[in-house]
């Protein structure tokens, strides 16, 4: 076993002489079995499908070799590299800008094709030694073309940056948006304007309202 995540355990191994990861969604005994089985099966299928489909848009994701739906296991290519979360504090600002700009392009590429990642965090982005950016963990992936779903996707990244990388947040998120916008501009779409504007709307909803003064 190489890593025990919240949702799945990752094992490394070989599959027809290829170096692979076995992503095993372990049963969660805290949930009732019926609900647990449904969630694990759905997410396994969901993730495998998404990994296969988003490849078509030139997005770097692990290649899927086999899935075992009954046991909720996906066998996929081992991507060597480091999680962005682990290296972020050790790289210079130019590099940060470069990576987040690229990540912005990648996410815009997903969004304009109707894919929502659903869990964009710095733990789900892998930087390879060749400096390629890989997106992983598509368990919460959704197909959607709504502004709302795309905004929530960006909002979640923003939240993770604030909570885990407070000092780098502004810099990184600005670079991200720059890349995101430029990717949308390549297809002449203005959808990004509404998506970004809607992030504020999400924040202002209910418990996200910023401080306000009252006497």
């Amino acid at each position: 076993m190489i890593r025990k995540g919240a949702e799945a355990s990752l094992y490394s191994g070989h599959w027809f002489e290829k170096e692979v990861i076995f992503k095993y969604r372990i049963p969660k005994k805290y949930r009732i079995e019926e609900l647990d089985k449904k969630i694990r099966t759905e997410r396994t299928i969901n993730e495998a499908r998404a990994l296969i489909r988003v490849k078509d848009y030139g997005i770097n994701v692990p290649q899927v070799f086999e899935i075992d739906i009954i046991n909720s296991i996906i066998i996929m290519k081992y991507i060597h590299g480091a999680k962005l979360k682990e290296i972020l504090s050790n790289i210079d600002n130019n590099k940060k800008q470069f990576y987040f700009n690229e990540i912005g392009r990648i996410i815009a590429n997903l969004h304009k094709n109707g894919h929502i990642h659903g869990d964009i965090t710095t733990s789900n982005i892998i930087i390879t030694p060749e400096e390629n950016i890989f997106l992983i963990d598509f368990g919460l992936h959704e197909y959607s073309d709504t502004i709302e779903d795309k905004s929530v996707d960006l909002h979640l990244l923003k939240r993770v940056l604030i909570s885990s990388h407070g000092n780098d947040y502004k810099y990184c998120f600005d670079a991200f948006l720059e890349g995101y916008i430029s990717e949308y501009k390549t297809i002449g779409s203005n959808e990004w304007k509404e998506i970004i504007k809607n992030i504020d709307a999400i924040e202002s909803r209910g418990r996200y309202i910023k401080s306000e003064k009252r006497i």
């Binding site: 604030i162 910023k210 401080s211 306000e212």
Partner: peptide, 9 residues
């Protein structure tokens, strides 16, 4: 002054 919508973070 009270801050009805202040976030803890």
């Amino acid at each position: 002054i009270i801050k009805p919508k202040e976030r803890m973070d």
